[in-house]
C-alpha cells in the first residue's frame, strides 16, 4: 500500500503536466505565433477551402501536372487514411504497377521517348506526397503545354518559378508542389 500511493499520485500529476498542460501550452503558443501553419496550411478560393499546401491531390486530367502515384484506399490521396503501398522490391505486382504507369504516361504523350523519372511512377510513403522532382515536372512540360495550347517555354518558366531548392542549400531535395503548380496554371493564387 505504501508503494501504491507515490506511484498513483505521481502518475496522475505527471499526466496532467505532460498530457494537459504541455499540449495546451504548445497549442496556445503555436496558434498565437504560427496560426496558419498550426491549422493545416489551408488554401482558400474565396470562401471555399480547396486544399492544403502540404497535402497532395489526385490529378488525372492531362491538362494538369500529375503528382506521384498514391496507395491510399479506397481512393488515391485519401487524406483520412494515409498509407504507402508496402510492396516489396521483388513483388511482381510492383513491377507490373510501374509498367502500367509508364504506359499510361506514354499514352498521353507518344512523342516523348525519354525515360520517366522514378518518383513519377512509384507510390509515395504517405500516399499524400505534395511534391514531384523537377525532373518529373520537366518530363510533363511538353504534354501540359500541348494540352493547353501554350508554348513550352512559358510552362517551363512557371515550373522553374515554382521549384523549391534545398533548405540552406543542403537539406532535403529540390521539388515542385504539384497542387500549387496546377493552381498557378489555372491562374489562381494559393493563399
Amino acid at each position: 500500500m505504501s508503494e501504491l500511493r507515490p506511484a498513483l499520485i505521481s502518475f496522475l500529476l505527471l499526466t496532467v503536466i505532460t498530457g494537459v498542460v504541455y499540449p495546451l501550452a504548445v497549442t496556445g503558443l503555436g496558434q498565437a505565433l504560427f496560426s496558419d501553419k498550426a491549422n493545416g496550411s489551408l488554401i482558400r478560393d474565396g470562401d471555399r477551402l480547396i486544399g492544403s499546401q502540404l497535402i497532395g491531390q489526385p490529378f488525372l486530367d492531362p491538362r494538369y501536372f500529375f503528382g506521384r502515384p498514391s496507395a491510399t484506399a479506397p481512393q488515391p490521396y485519401n487524406g483520412a487514411a494515409s498509407s504507402g503501398s508496402n510492396q516489396g522490391p521483388t513483388n511482381p505486382a510492383l513491377a507490373t504497377a510501374i509498367s502500367a504507369r509508364v504506359a499510361a504516361l506514354r499514352a498521353f504523350d507518344p512523342e516523348n521517348k525519354t525515360s520517366v523519372p522514378i518518383d513519377l511512377v512509384t507510390a509515395s510513403g504517405s500516399g499524400l506526397d505534395p511534391h514531384i522532382s523537377p525532373a518529373a515536372a520537366e518530363y510533363q512540360v511538353p504534354r501540359v503545354a500541348r494540352m493547353r495550347n501554350r508554348p513550352e517555354s512559358e510552362i517551363r518558366t512557371l515550373v522553374k518559378e515554382m521549384t523549391e531548392g534545398r533548405t540552406f542549400g543542403i537539406l532535403g531535395e529540390p521539388r515542385v508542389n504539384v497542387l500549387l503548380l496546377n493552381l498557378a496554371l489555372d491562374g489562381k493564387q494559393a493563399g
Partner: peptide, 19 residues
C-alpha cells in the same frame, strides 16, 4: 524509368519514399 540520381531528381528506390 530513370533511377540515376541527378541535379533534378534523387533517383534510386523511391517506392515508399517522399520527394
Amino acid at each position: 524509368v530513370d533511377q540515376a540520381s541527378s541535379a533534378t531528381h534523387s533517383g534510386g528506390n523511391m517506392e515508399g519514399k517522399e520527394v
